[in-house]
Measured scan of single mutants.
Amino acid sequence: DAPDEFRDPLMDTLMTDPVRLPSGTIMDRSIILRHLLNSPTDPFNRQTLTESMLEPVPELKEQIQAWMR
Rank of each mutant, 00 (worst) to 15 (best):
R29A: 05
S39H: 10
I26G: 00
R34F: 11
M27P: 00
L54Q: 01
L21I: 04
G24H: 04
P56D: 14
G24Q: 04
L21D: 01
T48I: 13
A2Q: 06
L10I: 11
I32R: 00
T25G: 06
R20G: 01
G24T: 02
F6T: 02
K61M: 09
V57R: 04
M15P: 01
D28H: 03
W67G: 02
L36Y: 02
P56M: 07
D42H: 04
R7I: 09
E55V: 15
T13N: 07
D42P: 02
H35L: 13
V57Q: 09
P22I: 04
E5M: 13
K61D: 04
D42E: 07
E51K: 11
L37Y: 10
G24A: 03
L54P: 00
S52M: 10
P58F: 09
L33D: 02
D17H: 06
N38G: 11
H35N: 04
P43G: 01
M11V: 09
L14I: 14
N45K: 06
I64Q: 01
M68L: 15
A66G: 08
N45E: 06
G24P: 01
N38T: 15
T16F: 11
L36D: 01
R7L: 12
S52D: 15
P9A: 12
I31C: 09
V57I: 09
R46W: 12
P3S: 05
I32Y: 02
E62M: 13
L21Q: 01
I32H: 00
P3Y: 05
R34S: 11
D28L: 05
P18F: 03
L37E: 13
S30D: 11
P40T: 10
M15Y: 03
L36Q: 00
D4I: 15
L36A: 00
A66P: 01
E62N: 11
P18W: 05
L49W: 04
M53Q: 11
N38W: 12
D42V: 02
R46A: 13
D17P: 01
L21E: 00
I64R: 00
D17S: 04
L37D: 10
L54T: 01
L60W: 03
I32A: 05
S39Y: 10
T48C: 14
P58Y: 09
M53V: 05
L10R: 04
L21S: 01
Q65G: 08
E59G: 11
L10E: 04
M68P: 04
R46N: 15
R20D: 00
M15Q: 00
P58D: 09
M68T: 08
P56G: 10
F44M: 05
I64N: 01
E51I: 14
D12R: 15
L54N: 00
L36T: 01
I26R: 03
Q63M: 14
A2P: 15
D42S: 04
I64G: 01
P58C: 08
W67E: 02
S23F: 04
P43N: 02
I31P: 01
T13S: 10
F6Q: 02
D1M: 14
P58L: 10
M53Y: 04
D17F: 07
E51W: 12
F44S: 03
F44Y: 07
A2M: 14
P22R: 03
P56V: 07
E62S: 12
M11D: 10
S52I: 09
L21P: 00
E55A: 09
P22K: 03
H35F: 12
E51R: 09
Q65M: 15
P43A: 03
N38V: 14
P9C: 08
T25F: 15
I26S: 00
P22M: 03
W67I: 04
I32G: 00
F6P: 14
E59L: 11
L54V: 04
P18L: 04
P9L: 05
D4A: 15
T13A: 06
F6C: 06
S39Q: 09
E5Y: 14
T48N: 12
R69K: 14
G24L: 04
W67L: 05
L33N: 06
S30T: 12
D4Q: 15
F6Y: 11
D12W: 15
M68N: 07
L36S: 00
L33A: 07
T13Y: 07
S39N: 11
W67M: 05
L21A: 00
Q47S: 15
R7M: 11
L10K: 05
L54S: 00
T25A: 13
T13C: 15
P3Q: 04
E55C: 09
T48W: 15
M53G: 05
F6G: 02
R20E: 03
P22V: 05
L21M: 06
T16A: 10
H35E: 07
A2S: 09
Q47K: 11
D17G: 02
D28A: 03
I31Q: 06
D8K: 07
N45M: 07
E59I: 10
P18C: 06
T50P: 02
T16Y: 12
L37G: 09
P22T: 02
M11P: 01
S52P: 08
M68H: 15
P18V: 03
P40R: 13
T41C: 12
E5D: 10
E55W: 08
P3G: 04
L54W: 04
Q65N: 11
L37F: 10
A66N: 13
E51M: 12
L54K: 01
M68F: 11
V57A: 08
L60N: 00
T48Y: 15
N45L: 07
D1K: 15
D42R: 06
L54Y: 02
L36G: 00
N38L: 14
E55L: 11
M53P: 02
V19G: 02
T48K: 13
D4T: 14
I26Y: 04
D8C: 10
E59A: 11
K61Y: 11
E51S: 11
T13W: 08
E5W: 14
E62R: 14
M27G: 01
F6S: 01
L21T: 04
T41M: 09
D1C: 15
L60K: 01
M15R: 00
M11Y: 11
R7F: 13
W67K: 03
P22H: 04
T13H: 07
P40A: 13
N45V: 06
S30E: 12
L36M: 09
I26F: 04
N45Q: 06
I26C: 07
F6L: 06
P40W: 08
L14H: 04
M53F: 04
T13I: 12
I64C: 06
Q63F: 08
G24D: 03
P43Y: 04
D42L: 03
L36F: 06
L33Y: 07
R20I: 07
D17E: 08
T41L: 09
R7C: 11
S52H: 12
D28W: 06
L14T: 06
Q47L: 10
T25S: 09
L10M: 11
L49Q: 00
T13K: 07
D28G: 03
L21N: 02
S23N: 07
G24N: 05
E51A: 14
T41D: 07
E62A: 15
D4L: 15
Q47A: 12
N45W: 05
A66Q: 13
Q63L: 15
S23W: 06
T16Q: 12
R46P: 06
S23I: 02
M15W: 02
N38E: 13
N38D: 12
P3R: 06
P43H: 02
Q47Y: 09
R34Y: 10
S30G: 10
R20V: 06
P58N: 09
L36I: 09
P22C: 05
P9K: 07
M11W: 10
T13G: 06
L21C: 05
K61P: 02
S30F: 11
N45I: 06
P58G: 08
S30A: 14
L14Q: 03
F6W: 09
M68G: 06
L37M: 14
D28V: 04
L60T: 01
V19D: 00
Q47D: 12
D1T: 14
A66I: 11
Q63D: 07
E5G: 10
D8M: 03
E62D: 11
I31W: 08
M53K: 05
Q47T: 15
A66D: 13
P56E: 12
Q47V: 10
L60R: 01
Q63A: 15
M68K: 08
T16D: 09
D8S: 03
M11T: 14
S30V: 12
E55R: 12
I31A: 09
N38C: 13
D42M: 02
V19A: 01
D4R: 15
M27N: 00
P58A: 09
D12G: 15
M15H: 01
P56T: 08
V19Y: 06
L36C: 05
S30P: 11
P56I: 06
R34I: 10
I32C: 06
D4G: 13
R29S: 07
N45Y: 06
M53R: 05
I64L: 06
T50V: 10
S39C: 10
P9Q: 06
P3T: 05
F6V: 02
I31G: 04
S30Q: 13
R69L: 13
T25E: 08
S52Y: 12
D12L: 14
L49P: 00
L37W: 10
Q65L: 15
S23R: 03
R29L: 10
E62V: 11
I31H: 08
R69E: 14
P22D: 01
L60G: 01
D28M: 06
D28Y: 04
L33S: 07
E51Q: 10
I32P: 01
L21V: 02
I26V: 11
A2D: 05
K61F: 10
E59K: 11
K61V: 08
N38K: 14
D1L: 14
S39K: 07
Q47G: 10
G24S: 04
Q47M: 13
L49G: 00
G24E: 01
T50C: 09
P40E: 11
I31S: 12
L37T: 11
K61E: 06
E59T: 11
R7T: 07
R7K: 13
E51G: 08
E62T: 10
E5R: 14
L60P: 00
Q63E: 10
R34D: 08
N45P: 01
